[in-house]
Amino acid sequence: MLCMICKQNAAQVHLTQIVDDKIKKVDLCEECAKHKGISDAPGFAIADLLLGLGASQEMAQAGGGEDLKCPVCGFTGADFKKAGRLGCSQCYLTFAESLENLLKTMHKGTRHIGKVPNSLRQSRDLTDRLKQLQKKLDRAVTEEDFEQAANLRDEIRSTRDQLEHLATGAKP
């Protein structure tokens, strides 16, 4: 096994970190380990060091093609390698593929859990509701329950109105 840093010498220092259920391993040759201060800092901030190490590795690969360019802000893969930061929110789409591994090493998951802007949450709830109502309507029609179908159609109409209202009224 070769050292993850220099990719030349055989890896002799092997470190494992467990964050929740995920195991992260780093394999280094003695020289690189010493260089990173791993051998002379027992216990101290090793995990921090490792997280940084793994991350910087991924960081180097995350730019993807150096000439990949964000259509909104003009930021390139080469720029990301240099700065370690992105150009604009659209960059997350532009560089999505190459960012995936980086996010895996950095974070607990790769999908957002937590707060969602209110306007989005409302429209998401309404969209979900719309889908459910549509299903119910389909069933009512096949079962020839026309009274129920009429009620459902009214409900669908008012939900659509709410959604439209949200889309036009929410933006500043």
Binding site: L86, L103, M106, K115, R124
Partner: peptide, 16 residues
């Protein structure tokens, strides 16, 4: 904001 990635930040370390 992206439904998958959450709040989008300059550095990926703050994403979500």
């Amino acid at each position: 904001f992206s439904p998958e990635l959450g709040y989008l930040t300059a550095c990926p370390t703050n994403l979500g």
